[in-house]
Design a protein around this nucleic acid. Structure first.
Length: 545
RNA sequence: GCGCCCGUAGCUCAGCUGGAUAGAGCAACAGCCUUCUAAGCUGUGGGUCGCAGGUUCGAGUCCUGCCGGGCGCGCCA
């Protein structure tokens, strides 16, 4: 909607001898400053050491604006030029909502870009916790945002099935199996002590028969490793599926080793002179790329550090043809970013190939009290427990309510409340109320179509709601650019406020026929936008509550 | 000690590429139901944007230093 105006302002700028000057055309924060405002006159004046308000007058003289585009202009403050858009613009924008329907808000600016987004990637060593849940919600929503803006997105999960941690789970499960069968055994140092491993031990004994516990240690460990991996993976998949998150590709660390990709990666690094031997280990010169120390690739015992398969894995992503690989990581891994960037820069990949989105910790509280842990895991609140208590919609909304890199306080009492204090409820209620209007009117939303007659909508609430609706595509694009779904929750809350206010102060059913029709059109479009925004975040849009 | 992130109303947080008088929600207080969900709406009070400098026509936003909090700095992942 602002494109035509921006083009015209650019033309005026070059006519006034400032070709290519940078200026801002934005939506002013407060009302009273129009629909759009530009600082063009101020930046021009600065350059010419002129009075900005005089320059603004010259700009206005040069501006040629179609009357169906801008209704009114003014010079304000230190030299801003404010624009009020013509009603035709709003009516046209409204038509787009109805025409696009469930696709309203989608765009094509990312067309052709292949993006891989890797998230959750939890070690298969235990149940998923709330931190993983936040990562899942965030990764999934960023994926959707990128899809909505035309990117080709692959959601990917990396299974760390090759490291030391798996050995520890295997040993811990083996110990529990032995204990369950009545033998003396201890969970080893550095092992996993959660209650879930006792449950799993009982389960595998029932499935595999008591002979399992009789096996020699090496064979028992081998079997427990397989069983633990399978059980944890199944459980993670189930937890994620129940949370509405599905992955396109599951990659395995073990497969990276098995496919010879690790050796290849080492070869690529050595070729570029980036590795050296010292103190019995193989090192990578990451300091050349801004890291604060070099990193070990191959340990003294001949095995590789986690960095090696990870590098190989990211090379693989590049070779699969992705233009960008986004990783969603827990904030405690932030120190790892310079290392990975260093490596990928050394390999000559474009600087924006690799991006990391950090997810901060989640503190779960109930009322005022911190919820410390789950009985089952013994260490943390599980995603499953949380979702069972508050539901998928509330969990997702709460996880997305804050920017990923800020700490999140998750109040389970609040998430369960059926009042407007609960933001999820408040937003979903707006959708349900709009649906209620159509029930009362006894017609399907889709049956109301055609152009919106703004003259039939006298209330300020009508216009305010409409203006909020047509911002949606822009919000999606901004959120996608910044990999920041939380912007959508902020927008949703503002939109819901506009809907509730409109609903409260205006009537639809039973008004004069032209007013009723116009309001039904407005209600239909508001319902579309609310549903689209909620769907984008993986949250349902209920018709009644 | 070094590095990264954060510090905005009593609480939880917005604040886009530096723009106009710093905004929401909750909590507090005061109102609003013969009307499509009062499961809602309206109003009031509440701020040294951690502190001190700097850059700029203009700083919550950029730079420097300090204070406070979180995380990281492993031949763990």
């Amino acid at each position: 909607m602002s494109e035509a105006l921006r083009t015209e302002l650019t033309r005026v700028a070059s006519r006034l001898g400032a070709d290519g000057i940078e200026f801002v055309l934005e939506r002013p924060r407060g009302a009273g400053h129009g629909d759009l405002a530009t600082n063009l006159a101020m930046v021009l004046a600065q350059r010419e050491r002129a009075n900005p308000r005089h320059t603004a007058e010259r700009v206005l003289q040069e501006l040629q604006l179609a009357p169906d585009l801008v209704a009114r202009t003014e010079i304000a403050g230190p030299g801003f030029i404010n624009f009020w858009l013509a009603q035709d613009q709003l009516a046209a924008a409204h038509r787009e909502i109805l025409e696009a329907g469930a696709a309203y808000g989608r765009s094509v600016w990312g067309a052709g870009r292949k993006i891989n987004i890797e998230f959750v990637s939890a070690n298969p060593t235990g149940p998923l916790h709330v931190g993983h849940g936040r990562g899942a919600a965030l990764g999934d929503a960023i994926s959707s945002l990128l899809e909505w803006t035309g990117h080709a997105v692959t959601r990917e999960f990396y299974i760390n099935d090759a490291g030391v941690q798996i050995d520890r789970v295997a040993a811990s499960l083996w110990a529990r199996v032995r204990q369950e069968a009545g033998y003396p055994a201890e969970v080893p140092e550095g092992g996993y002590h959660g209650e879930y491993l006792r449950e799993n031990a009982r389960r595998v004994l029932a499935e595999q028969g008591p002979e399992l516990a009789e096996l020699p240690e090496s064979e028992g460990l081998r079997r427990c490793r397989e069983l633990a991996l399978r059980i944890q993976r199944e459980e993670q998949d189930r937890d994620l599926a129940d949370f509405g998150v599905r992955f396109d590709v599951l990659s395995s660390e073990q497969a990276v080793y098995d496919g010879g990709k690790v050796e290849r990666a080492l070869g690529m690094l050595a070729e570029r002179g980036l590795t050296y031997e010292a103190e019995g280990a193989l090192w990578l010169r990451t300091t050349q790329f801004g890291d604060d120390r070099d990193r070990v690739l191959r340990k003294g015992d001949g095995s590789f550090t986690y960095l090696v398969p990870d590098i190989a894995y990211h090379i693989d992503k590049h070779e699969r043809g992705f233009d960008q690989a986004i990783d969603v990581w827990g904030a405690d891994h932030h120190g790892y970013i310079p290392r990975m960037k260093a490596v990928l820069a050394a390999l000559g990949y474009p600087p924006d190939f690799f991006a990391v989105e950090l997810v901060q910790l989640v503190r779960v509280v109930r009322g005022g009290d911190e919820v410390k842990m789950s009985k089952r895991s013994g260490e943390f609140v599980t995603l499953r427990d949380l979702v069972e208590e508050v539901g998928v919609d509330a969990a997702r909304y709460f996880f997305l309510m804050r920017r990923g890199d800020s700490h999140l306080v998750f109040d389970v009492e609040l998430a369960k409340k059926q009042t407007d204090e609960n933001p999820v409820f408040y937003v979903q209620m707006a959708h349900a109320r709009l649906s209620g209007i159509f029930r009362t009117a006894e017609c399907e939303p889709a049956a109301i179509s055609g152009s919106l007659d703004l003259a039939a909508l006298p209330a300020p609430d009508d216009t305010e709601l409409l203006k909020k609706l047509v911002l949606f595509p822009e919000e999606v694009e901004k959120a996608a650019r910044q990999h920041d779904p939380h912007r959508i929750t902020v927008y949703l809350h503002e939109l819901a406020t506009a809907v509730h206010g409109w609903y409260h102060r205006t009537r639809t059913v039973g008004e004069a026929p032209d007013v009723e029709r116009a309001r039904l059109l407005l209600a239909r479009s508001a319902r579309i936008v609310l549903a689209n925004a909620l769907t984008l975040l993986g949250i349902s849009a209920p018709d009644r509550m």
